[in-house]
């Protein structure tokens, strides 16, 4: 195994580590959407026999982790290192899940880009030989996130038409050597880009510049063109953020019409109602990436996918102090599992 750095932000793996197994779980609204067949477990309600929504989010993480382990035929003690994050202060669900798993743990936060941050670090660890098996995990829960970032859940405020709905979902990916559902060929670590957007409901506009910056950097540093990918997937730009990102890519000289672009937050809530401009949250890229996309890669329906999780580094305190919302986007290039297919 080896790693090569290419350009400022990109690392490539000549002998790519594999995603041995992935799992996705989600809440009722997501479970009623078009991707329901690709979710390993759907919770019928936003809370169940747990004391709090936070505990429900932790339960979702544990479910995703145990499903991924079971699919790969591994035990918690086989995890050499565990990378996880979520949207809560002090990333408590991830800490408690790590307590359950008992594996060496690095807690992460890059808002909704956390799923790809975790996957990137897991891939780097496996490719460097530092770990045989690394578990990457991220989650979000609409009831824990809304209270964290905006108003109480039941507060009767009218959200603008460009607001997004935080996904209740978790996804886990087990990275290791050998054959799996997909191979991790390269990754581009995002820079923090601040377009000076301040409206906490305008997440798409805040994150689109980071997405465009990372995609352009990835293509430039690897000498690739958009058409080298079957699909370039953003995390949670939403309807408006996707439209904005298309124009920003054009300004960077990337021909977005050359391949398919899609958004995890839009895919996850396709066919679901009352989500305004689409889904958001760590759960979007985690559940869609480690569920839907991984299955398409394994089946050969997709061959090469660039999975770009977008995160708005929003803090309610900073926002009230009249600070803008910086954003980040991490990209991971995935190839279908069997190189000889």
């Amino acid at each position: 195994m080896s790693i090569e750095k290419q350009g400022r932000q990109t690392w490539v793996f000549p002998a790519p580590p594999a995603i041995l197994a992935g799992a996705a779980v989600a809440g009722p609204k997501e479970g009623g959407g078009a991707l329901r067949a690709d979710l390993d477990h759907i919770y019928p309600a936003l809370s169940w026999d747990k004391k709090s929504f936070e505990q429900c989010e932790q339960a979702m993480q544990e479910k995703a982790a145990s499903l991924a382990l079971a699919k790969a035929g591994l035990q918690p003690q086989d995890i050499d290192i565990f990378f996880a994050g979520d949207l809560l202060n002090q990333i408590t669900p991830s800490g408690f899940t790590a307590r359950q798993l008992g594996a060496p743990f690095f807690g992460l936060f890059s808002a909704c880009a956390t799923a790809m941050e975790a996957l990137s670090l897991a891939a780097l660890c496996v490719a460097s030989g530092a770990a045989r098996h690394a578990l990457a995990l991220a989650s979000s829960h609409t009831c824990t996130a809304e209270r964290q970032f905006r108003y109480p859940n039941e507060y009767g405020s009218q959200k603008p038409p460009y607001a997004q709905h935080t996904a209740t979902a978790a996804g886990a990916a087990l990275v290791g050597e050998g054959q799996g559902a997909a191979r991790i060929c390269a990754l581009t670590v995002g820079r923090v880009i601040d377009a000076q957007v301040c409206d906490p409901f305008q997440m798409g506009a805040a994150m689109a510049p980071a997405f465009a910056d990372t995609v352009a950097a990835h293509l430039r540093e690897l000498g690739l063109r958009p058409e080298n990918y079957d699909l370039i997937l953003s995390g949670d730009l939403g309807r408006d953020g996707c439209a904005i990102a298309g124009q920003l890519l054009a300004r960077q000289g990337v021909d977005a019409s050359a391949t398919h672009f899609a958004d995890c937050g839009l895919l996850l809530f396709q066919g679901a109602d009352e989500v305004l401009a689409g889904g958001s949250g760590c759960g979007c890229a985690a559940a869609v990436g480690f569920g839907h996309i991984l299955r398409r890669l394994a089946s050969g329906e997709l061959r090469r996918v660039l999975l770009c999780a977008t995160g708005a580094l929003l803090s309610p305190v900073a926002n009230q102090q009249k600070e803008s919302i910086p954003a980040i986007c991490h990209a991971v290039a995935l190839e279908g599992g069997n190189p000889h297919a």
Binding site: Q158, P160, P161, Y162, A195, Q196, V197, C198, Q202, G204, A205, P209, D240, A243, I244, Q247, L248, K322, E323, S324
Partner: peptide, 28 residues
């Protein structure tokens, strides 16, 4: 009171063109 930062003019225009406006009249 400090003023909130704003996106550059060109980006404000892109955002505006791709974001549905608040339906102020209808909402009122």
């Amino acid at each position: 009171m400090t003023k909130k930062p704003q996106p550059e003019r060109w980006y404000q225009e892109i955002i505006k063109a791709n974001t549905p406006p608040k339906q102020v009249f209808r909402n009122s």
